[in-house]
Nucleic acid binder design. Sequence first.
DNA 1: TCTGGGGTCCTAGGACCC
DNA 2: TCTGGGGTCCTAGGACCC
Length: 417
Amino acid sequence: MFALIDCNSFYASCEQAFNPALRSRPVVVLSNNDGCVIARSKAAKALGVPMAAPYFQIKKLCERHNVAVCSSNYELYGDISRRVMSILADFSTESEVYSIDEMFLNFSGFDLLGVEAHALKIVQTVWQWAWIPVCVGIGPTKTLAKVANAAAKKQSKNGVFILQDQDTIKKHLAKTPIEDVWGIGRRTAEKLLQLGVKTAGDFTLLDARLVRQQFGVVYERTLRELQGVACLKLEDIEAKKNICSSRSFSRPVTELAEMEQAVTLYMTRAAEKLRAQDSYAQAVMTFIQTNRFKPLKPQHYAGKVVSLVSASQDTCVLIKAAIEGLRQGFKLGFQYQKAGVMLLDLIQNNERQFDLFTPAPDQKRETLMKTIDNLNNRFGRHTAFFGSAGLKHDWQMRCNHLSKRYTTQWDELPTCH
DNA sequence: TCTGGGGTCCTAGGACCC
DNA sequence: TCTGGGGTCCTAGGACCC
C-alpha cells in the first residue's frame, strides 16, 4: 500500500499559519511578478477564484470579498515544506518527497483499521506541529493513492480516504473523470474521449496492448496502476540534470546593461543550486524574450548555448558564459519582458574529465565559493554578491504583497505581544 | 498597466558503427 | 519482383507533473 499526503492549499496555508488575521479571510497567493493565482484557500475557491487566473482579471472580485492577496514567498514555503516533510518521513521507513507539498509513504503491513488510525495520526500531527492542514490518500498503487487523495480533499470529513478492496476501487473509479487521473493530461484525455473513455473506470477496461500501441508505455503503466498492479515504486531524490533560473521583469527592459545585471543575478542563484547538489555544468544557456501577450509589438526570442572548456561550478565562470550568450542573442530595439539562464549537461564530481590543456581545479576558487555560500546561508541571500549584478534593480519582479520570511531571516522573526 | 517558474520522461528519426 | 541484422548516440518535440 502507498499513502500520498498532500498539503491543502499549501502556499495559502503557509500564509495563514503565521498570520492569524488571515485565517478568517479567503486567501490567494500570486505567482512571481504578482502575475497569476497559484494557490487559493478553501474560502477563495468557494468564491469562484479560478486557478491560474491573471491577477488583474480578478482584482475587483478580490476587493469586493475582502480576499487577502499574497505575493509568492518561496523562502517561507520552502522552509515550511522541509519541516512538514521531516514530520511525515517519521511515519514510515520509506518515503519520497514528490513535490513541495506532497509526499508518498510506503504503507505496507497494516490491516485496514491500522491504516486509518495511522493516517489520522498524520493529519493530526502535521496540524499540531506545523499548522498545515493535510489530506491522506491510500491505495495499492501510487496512482490509486493519488486518486484517493483527491477524494480525501473533496469528500472526506477527517482528511483520510482509503481505496483498498476491489469493489470500492471499481465503484470509485467509475465516478472519476479520466482527465483527473495522474499522468493523463488534456491532450490524452481528448484522445481517450474519442474512444469513448470518459472515466478512469472506462480506461481500466481497455486492452493493455492497445494502450501501449496507441499511447505508449507511460500510459500502459497508468492503466495497470489503476487496475491495481503497482508499476511505480518510491523514488530517491536524484541530482537534477538541468537547473534553470528565470524571471519576468516588472517593466520592459531595453538596455543591454540592465539585462546583464539580471542575467548575473539569475546565474548567481542557479550556481547556488548547482553547488547545493554538488554538480558541475558543462554548458550554459541564456534566453531572453519579449512579451508574448503583446503580439502587436516587435517580438524576439533568443536562446544561446555556450559550452564550457571544462565543467564548472564557479559562479564567476558561469556568469561570464551567461553574459557571452546574452550578448550573442540580445538585439537593440526590442522590449524584453523576461530573461533566464539554464545550466546544462550537469555531471557529478566523480564524472569530471580533465585533459593536459585545461588548468587543474583551483582549490582557492572552490574555497571562495564555499565561503560565499556559507555567508549567504547564514546571513541571508545576497549578503555577498557579484559586482556585475549592479546595485539598483528597478526592473526586478513585482511583489507588492510579500509576507515576512518568518523562519529563515533573523530580522523577520515573528514577535509576540 | 497587468498573463509564473520550475522540472521529467519517452519517442521518432537521423547518423553512425560492425 | 527481390537488397540483413544488430546496435549506439544525439536531438527535437510532445506530453506530462507541481
